[in-house]
Amino acid sequence: MTDLSEPIATRLDAVRQRLRAAEAQYGRQPGSVALLAVSKRQPVDAIRVALSLGQQAFGENYLQEAVEKRAQLADETIEWHFVGALQSNKTRAAAEGFDWVHAVDRLKIARRLSEQRPQHLAPLQCCIQVNVSGEASKAGVKPNAVSELAHAVAALPGLRLRGLMTLPEAVESFAEQRSAFRQLRVLQEQLIDEGLTLDTLSMGMSNDLEAAVAEGATLVRLGTAVFGPRPEKSS
């Protein structure tokens, strides 16, 4: 763990400074944007280092990997977020083992998560993934279908709908980055006007963090910016 401590501490400090600078620049309250450290393919020791530095929320993309990590880190207090695409035959592991699911984009998935959430646990916190860029390769509900899905998800007893999530098309222009995130913010404002209680905009990664903060992100998802390059997949 010693070999990981210094580089992760340096990266995590830089990310936190970057977040605080963006908050100040765009008139956000200090500390209003939380960091989700995406730890997919990172070793358990790297997560322990980040925990020792005050990071408690971690995001995973692969269920089996996450289940193994949770078992190894059972002695730690961790807020686990599932941020990957979720197939209907794998919802039980997400419902039983995570605190948050970020990528709900179908009512079928939401219903299964609700039904499979153990009753002794708090409702599963979730976000609806919206495909704001309209990319065929990306998951997410279309913007014009968000309202119907959001109201249906909010009514499910095992879930608590917290807000919206997006992974927009990667673009270099800051204005274009802001435009994509603005779409998500406007959609959420419309849902709030319709009576839903929402407080989370999960948007922004290392290349567009500032644009996301400018448009109201409350949670940004960063992986290699915190942990460094991901180890190669084992064969």
Rank of each mutant, 00 (worst) to 15 (best):
Q17W: 13
R20W: 00
A22Y: 00
Q25S: 14
Y26H: 10
Y26A: 03
R28C: 01
Q29N: 14
Q29W: 08
K40E: 14
K40L: 11
Q42F: 02
V44I: 15
V44S: 13
D45R: 11
A46G: 09
A46Q: 06
I47S: 03
R48K: 14
Q56E: 15
A57P: 05
G59L: 11
E65L: 06
K69W: 06
L73V: 14
T77A: 14
E79N: 12
W80V: 00
F82M: 06
V83M: 01
V83T: 02
A85I: 12
K90Q: 14
T91V: 15
R92A: 05
R106G: 02
A110Q: 09
A110I: 06
S114I: 11
L121T: 15
Q125H: 15
Q129R: 05
V132Q: 04
E135K: 14
S137T: 14
G140C: 05
A145Q: 09
A145G: 02
E148Y: 01
A150R: 01
V153T: 03
P157E: 02
P157A: 04
L167Y: 08
L167S: 00
A170W: 14
S173M: 08
S173I: 09
S173G: 03
Q177N: 09
R182Q: 13
E189H: 02
Q190Y: 02
I192H: 00
E194D: 12
G195T: 05
T197R: 08
T200R: 04
S202Q: 04
M203D: 01
G204N: 08
N207M: 02
E210H: 10
A217Y: 02
A217R: 01
R221Q: 07
R221H: 11
S234I: 14
